[in-house]
Amino acid sequence: MPVTILIPTVLRQYTGNQATVAVDGKTVGDTLQNLAAAHPGLKTHIFTDNGKLRSFVNVFVNEDDIRQKGDMNAPVKNGDEVSIVPSIAGGRR
C-alpha cells in the first residue's frame, strides 16, 4: 500500500481533479518528486527553481510537520497520509 498525498482544492486542476494521489517512496522528498513526475503541472507550485520546497508551503506526514522530522528526508511508510498546505502564517492544518 503506497503513501497517499492529499491535494489542496486549488491544486487539483493539475491532478485531473483528484483529491488524493497515491505514490511510492521512502521519504517525503521521494513522494513529492514522484507526485511532480506524475503531474508535472504541480512542480512550480510546490518547488522553487532549485528544487527546494517553497517557503510558504507546509507539508505534514499524518499530523506531523516535516520541518520537525528531517524535512524532505522525513521517512514515510505505506499507508501514511502526506498533506500539502499553504502556510498562510505558520499554520497547522
Binding site: 482544492t9 486549488v10 507546509n58 498533506s83 498546505v85 502556510s87 498562510i88 502564517a89 497547522r92 492544518r93
Partner: peptide, 25 residues
C-alpha cells in the same frame, strides 16, 4: 491554517470559531 497569532486573538476576544479544511482555503 490561519496563523496561530490570529487564533489567539479571536479566542481572547471571545469569538466562537469553526475551523474549516485548510485544503479548501
Amino acid at each position: 491554517n490561519i496563523s496561530p497569532e490570529r487564533k489567539h486573538m479571536l479566542a481572547a476576544l471571545g469569538a466562537e470559531v469553526i475551523y474549516t479544511s485548510a485544503q479548501e482555503g
